[in-house]
Design a protein around this nucleic acid. Structure first.
Lengths: 208, 208
DNA sequence: CGTTTGTTTGACCGTTCGGTCAAATCGGAT
DNA sequence: ATCCGATTTGACCGAACGGTCAAACAAACG
């Protein structure tokens, strides 16, 4: 689409720190609640310097969403129709959970955007995301029809994986207050694996 | 605590519409992102009139959180140690889901507050909520020890119910974009029941 | 060295923010 | 009808907002 002119090291570095600072602030306060001064402070730059690298607050936000959406669907895309059904679903859930663990700011940015009504990314939700979900739901349905996993609603299955994995990043403060400050993700990984195995396994070999 | 002087019908009505308007705006934009003008507009009152009934923007927000927290823990409190284990957990999950269905704005308000770092309600999370969760986790653990439900992590079990039920309110825009504009809660209720029954039932009588 | 280009910033602008206030209006009891 | 407290609002305030700009500064190159 847009070909970038060659970028100096200073440009690359400053654009990076601005995006990181913007991610810090937007992911906590949302678009409206964030201010350029907060972002400039988080980035360690002056406000006019911010606007030397990005034309506006909106542009910073848009750049963050763009780089987020570029990889957000990858875990679901990787769900392989030719793999072992239970293994594939569990691997998907664990990939998504790892994404929440490793990129909690991105997860929260996504959450604030959705909560605000998804003004910027609604087209992506109703387009590519919807198509991808429908495609993978068909895969799940075919597995269910073949008796390889237990029959349940494939769409809600996918949504439930989103809900569970997002929650540990987005509601981090609440989870830590209740579970303590230890690593909640380790326990979450184990629980989620257990949960979906027991849901999907067609011939449950319990009590191992 | 604070005894209210007798309230006229006008006062009762205007305080109500202000809180409703504030809920509309805060639940979408968060505290920082919301403006008094937006709230006044949503309430159908002028901005100075708003501040005749509430001393400040913070006071409106605090009143909303207070009335939210007053009932937020009720579904979990109602989990009965003397009831049938699977029935009790499923009933809790369904009560929580009903709360998301019937009070989506309150659910989103809670979400924005948590995402912002829970500056107003952190004490409640680390205090009453934590205590309640620990208490109910002990109940779940005793059921597991007695073999009445399958053994899994009780804390993560509770957190997962929060995650799933909140999601249908908080990520409503995304859910609707993917599942269509129909009633997602009906399908969610069925799926969640299925999910937790298969996790918890100690002697699964599948294929009914 | 000088010059050119890229980078940084203090000062500033118009607008919107949360909040105030005096004056106007309303409503219910007498 | 009159009164008095309750209610409503237009006009306004200082602060913070997103954004601009000219001038100062740094880096690269001959």
């Amino acid at each position: 689409m847009n070909e970038h002119p060659p970028m100096t090291r200073i440009q690359a570095r400053n654009r990076a720190v601005i995006l990181s600072g913007g991610l810090d602030v937007f992911s906590i306060a949302g678009f409206r609640g964030a201010t350029l001064d907060q972002i400039a402070d988080a980035a360690g730059l002056s406000k006019p310097n911010l606007l030397y690298y990005f034309p506006s607050k909106d542009a910073i936000y848009a750049a963050l969403l763009e780089q987020l959406l570029a990889t957000w669907l990858d875990p679901l895309r990787a769900l392989d129709a030719d793999g072992d059904p239970v293994t594939e679903v569990l691997a998907y859930a664990r990939r998504k959970l790892a994404l929440s663990r490793d990129f909690p700011r991105e997860s929260r940015l996504f959450a604030t955007e959705i909560l605000a009504g998804a003004p910027q990314i609604h087209a992506m939700l109703a387009g590519p995301l919807r198509d991808l979900v429908n495609e993978k739901a068909l895969v799940l349905q075919s597995w269910m029809d073949a008796g390889r996993i237990r029959a349940t609603d494939p769409h809600h299955l996918i949504v439930s994986i989103w809900a569970l994995t997002q929650h540990y990043a987005d509601f981090d403060v609440q989870v830590r207050a209740v579970l303590g400050d230890g690593d909640a993700f380790a326990g979450a990984d184990h629980f989620i694996t257990d949960l979906y195995r027991s849901l999907l396994d067609p011939a449950p070999a319990r009590r191992l």
